[in-house]
Each structure stands twice: as structure tokens, then as C-alpha cells.
């Protein structure tokens, strides 16, 4: 894995909160290659969000190292590292800094001393990318949760990071807003060759990933492709993930004595399989 392409490289990372008895993140090692989409899943309290805070230097690790785009994360380099990372958090309300949509998108650029002419152009570009340009003068109180997350995404895109970290960015949205955001992210990822690290409970979000890392009690317990992971069927629930619809259906069919294939099928291939199995009957 460590073939030199890794844009995020974490090794033996450990962090313990002052008040707690066990480390929240315990000897975690992983690499993310440039252009990959990696999902980190785990149930509540498994250390996912702590990991996210460690990655952008909000928390300082007790031991272990983090290298991001070739820079070792230290107290001195933390601001340089943050330049390369964009982060979308969970609560749409609590990350909306600007008084209006356009102001919020500009916030990151203001911090980076971008000149006003460039800012005006990039605010427009970013808002067009996420489909929020006609809302530019709206105040956050007049937007839906999904729209606020799209604005948060635009704010991140305006500063053109190499890495996008989603810290449960879709967990407070309704299903429609969720798939909306995920589609936007997918398009952006392709267009800008982003590396995406998504920390999530959401099955659809995890299914978008190239790789899934399962974390439990601060340790990585499994690393797999979504295909391989979803074969666990109902064990997924213990990992803090939902079971995909097609896996649920497969299991129910198996209970009724239908000889279903043992490996995981997504909805499309399950439909194909059902379709073919009827033909042969």
C-alpha cells in the first residue's frame, strides 16, 4: 500500500482524552492514495470523529504520525496542512459562519488573503458547482439542511483542497438531501480529482467508497471493499452500519429457501439475478 502515492499516511496514531480511561484512537495505521474514496465506518463512540479532528490538527496526537500530501503534521505545519484539506462537518447549522450564502463561501478565502476580485469569481464558480448560485443572498435561517451542507461544500471547494474529509456530513439530512449531497460530491470528485475520506454511518455513503475501514473502540478491525464488507450481512449492524437493501432481500429470500448466491449483490445485479433465475425456472 505504501507505494509513495499515499496522500494521507497515518501510522501508529494514538490519542486519549484527558478524562477518559481508554484511548479514543488506538494505534491506528492507514494510507489513502490520491484520488481514492475511502470510508471509515464504526458505531457511535468508536473514535471516528476524534480521528477526523486529529487529521486536521484540532487535536494533537499522543503518539504516532500523520503525513498529508508529503507534509508531516506538526504544530508548525498545521496551517499548511489545513490548506490542503477541506472538511464538511455534521451539523449544517454549526458550521455556517457567514451571514449569507455568498459570505459563507468566501470565509475560507478571506482567511487565506485571497484578493476580492478573485473571491467574487470563485464564490460564483463554487456556488454554480453545487447548484446554489440563485441562493447566494439567502440567510442560513432560510435554507434547508441539505442546502446548508451544499453551501458548506461550496465553501470548501472555493479554496480548492486536494483532500475532502466528510465528518458525518450527511447524518442530519433527510434521504433526499443525502443522495443529493453524495451525487454532488461524486461529480466534484471526478472533476477535480479529489481524495475523499468519508467518516460515516450511512450505507449509501460507504457504498460509494473504493475501500472501507471499519473502526471499533479506536482500532481498525477490518479493511475491505464495499463488496466484500457487505457480504457480512447482518453482522454489519454490530459494526455500526445498516445492511444494504439488496443484502436484506437476499437474506429474506435465503430464509424462505431460495438458493441465493453467497456473495454480495448490489440492487442492479440482484435484479439481474432474480430476472435470470425466473427465466431458468
Amino acid at each position: 500500500m505504501a507505494d509513495g502515492l499515499a496522500i494521507i499516511s497515518v501510522s501508529n496514531l494514538t490519542y486519549q482524552y484527558a478524562q477518559s480511561e481508554a484511548p479514543a484512537v488506538n494505534d491506528v495505521t492507514f494510507d489513502v492514495e490520491a484520488g481514492d474514496w475511502v470510508a471509515i465506518v464504526g458505531h457511535n463512540g468508536s473514535g471516528k470523529s476524534t480521528l477526523a479532528k486529529l487529521l486536521i490538527g484540532i487535536l494533537a496526537a499522543d503518539s504516532g504520525t500523520i503525513d498529508i500530501a508529503g507534509t508531516r503534521l506538526t504544530e508548525a505545519s498545521v496551517w499548511d496542512v489545513r490548506e490542503t484539506i477541506g472538511m464538511v462537518f455534521q451539523n449544517p447549522d454549526n458550521q455556517f459562519v457567514g451571514a449569507t450564502v455568498a459570505d459563507d463561501v468566501a470565509f475560507g478565502m478571506e482567511n487565506r488573503h485571497v484578493s476580492r476580485d478573485v473571491m467574487i469569481r470563485r464564490v460564483k464558480e463554487a456556488l454554480l458547482q453545487v447548484g446554489m448560485w440563485e441562493f447566494r443572498d439567502r440567510e442560513p435561517a432560510r435554507l434547508s439542511g441539505g442546502q446548508k451542507q451544499r453551501v458548506a461544500l461550496a465553501g470548501v471547494m472555493a479554496v480548492a483542497p486536494k483532500i475532502l474529509i466528510l465528518d458525518e456530513a450527511t447524518s442530519m439530512l433527510d434521504p433526499e438531501g443525502r443522495s443529493d449531497i453524495l451525487n454532488t460530491i461524486k461529480t466534484l470528485k471526478q472533476k477535480l480529482n479529489l481524495t475523499v475520506l468519508s467518516i460515516t454511518h450511512d450505507i449509501d455513503e460507504a457504498a460509494q467508497a473504493d475501500r472501507i475501514l471499519v473502526i471499533d473502540d479506536g482500532r481498525f478491525i477490518e479493511e475491505a471493499t464495499p463488496q466484500a464488507l457487505f457480504e457480512h450481512g447482518s453482522d454489519l449492524i454490530a459494526m455500526g452500519l445498516d445492511v444494504p437493501f439488496s443484502a436484506k432481500l437476499t437474506e429474506l429470500l435465503a430464509q424462505r429457501g431460495v438458493a441465493v448466491p453467497a456473495h454480495y449483490l448490489d440492487e442492479g445485479s440482484l435484479a439481474d439475478w432474480l430476472w435470470k433465475s425466473r427465466l431458468t425456472k
Binding site: W79, E83, N91
Partner: peptide
């Protein structure tokens, strides 16, 4: 309080360091 913590983390993650030396979008 929770909001204040969240928003300060979000601001820091977006590169906010201090009030001075920022360019301004609105004029």
C-alpha cells in the same frame, strides 16, 4: 456552548486564525 465549540472547530478547519489580516468579500 456546543454550537460555539462546533463553530470554532469549523472556523479553524477553514483556516481562520485571527481577526486581523483577512481580506474582505463584502464591501
Amino acid at each position: 456552548f456546543q454550537r460555539a465549540v462546533d463553530i470554532s472547530i469549523a472556523m479553524e478547519a477553514r483556516g481562520y486564525r485571527d481577526g486581523e489580516n483577512r481580506t474582505k468579500y463584502r464591501q
